[in-house]
């Protein structure tokens, strides 16, 4: 830990794109993730934001929490609006209307805005090859409207529209693998990140912003309100998700997979699940079921890392 104390203050950018005074819940993992991302992005950034927690908590008129230029229009169109921002800036620079300068066009949306309602706009923008970075802050449900399930909600989680009950274990489907769907577009850079690993997150966001062409970072954003765990555990929960293999941290650069944190032995998923109210109802059998699935997916990922 000798080097640790030197490492931290030196490497973290001092810049804050998001100022305090925002209305995120106490202990919000998304707020932390956005704050870290905005440090990595720096001043020369234009953010396109989807409707959701991020928008509501940072933009109550007549005030804004943003130090960088920021636009919100609707819920499902971040990919398209960011395409327009990127094209508008590029065209004007090419035509000499504004000075040439590297400006990051960055889209930000939640898991619902990305993997459900905004998937088409995202896919279109990725396929067209816009030079932009898309950040998905995944808190695994529609938190802003009161914890309704999305396609990013994990199997077994109880939400208000996939409630656990006498004849239901809660969410009956496995979490949609958005990073893989994005990677299938063959874009130059895809990564997963988690604010519990702040330097890894900031490096990936920076790398994504510097990538020429589309880049995507899927950021695991623990939510004490929706996941029902004590507010001080946000960073710990994120770490448990990574250490148990529930949310592995990896990159896909030009089609080649790389696991950033590999663990010789994964932590039992039980440690991760039992810390959260949304999984409290799960039986040992179901936990075992999830354990097997996580191991299988993790193995698949490792094979891909070796093969690519």
């Amino acid at each position: 830990m000798e080097t640790f104390s030197v490492y931290v203050p030196k490497l973290a950018p001092k810049y804050e794109g998001l100022v305090p005074g925002h209305r995120f819940c106490i202990g919000c993992g998304e707020a932390l993730a956005v704050r870290l991302a905005s440090k990595a992005l720096g001043r020369d950034t234009v953010i396109t934001c989807a409707t959701g927690c991020l928008e509501i908590c940072t933009s109550g008129f007549p005030q804004t929490s943003w130090n960088v230029p920021w636009i919100h229009t609707l819920f499902e169109n971040v990919g398209a609006v960011a395409s327009g921002v990127e094209s508008g800036l590029k065209a004007q620079m090419r035509k000499g209307k504004i000075p040439e300068k590297k400006i990051n066009s960055v889209g930000m949306a939640g898991d619902g805005g990305t993997s459900d309602i905004g998937l088409q706009a995202l896919s279109g923008a990725l396929e067209r090859g816009h030079d932009f970075l898309y950040l998905c802050f995944d808190n695994e449900a529609y938190m802003n409207t009161g914890v309704q399930r999305s396609s990013a909600t994990p199997y077994g989680a109880s939400t208000t529209t996939s409630p656990a009950g006498k004849v239901s274990i809660g969410q009956k489907t496995w979490k949609k693998n958005l990073p893989d769907i994005v990677a299938a577009h063959n874009i130059p850079y895809v990564a997963t990140a988690c604010p519990s690993y702040p330097f890894d997150l900031m490096e990936k966001v920076k790398k994504g912003a510097e990538t020429e062409g589309p880049a995507y970072v899927h950021i695991f954003s623990p939510c004490p309100t929706g996941w029902r765990y004590p507010v001080d555990l946000t960073v710990r929960i994120g770490r448990l998700a990574v250490e148990s293999g529930v949310f592995p941290l990896y990159e896909v650069e030009d089609g080649s997979y790389k696991l950033n944190f590999d663990f010789p032995k994964l932590r039992p998923v039980r440690d991760y699940l039992k810390a959260q109210g949304r999984f409290r109802h799960l039986s040992d059998d179901e936990i075992q079921n999830i354990q097997q699935r996580v191991e299988k997916e993790y193995k698949k990922l490792k094979v891909r890392c070796q093969e690519t």
Binding site: V19, R23, T58, S59, Q63, S65
Partner: peptide, 9 residues
């Protein structure tokens, strides 16, 4: 920019 800092949480 950053005017929401006036809101004390």
């Amino acid at each position: 920019p950053g005017s929401a800092a006036a809101y004390k949480t």
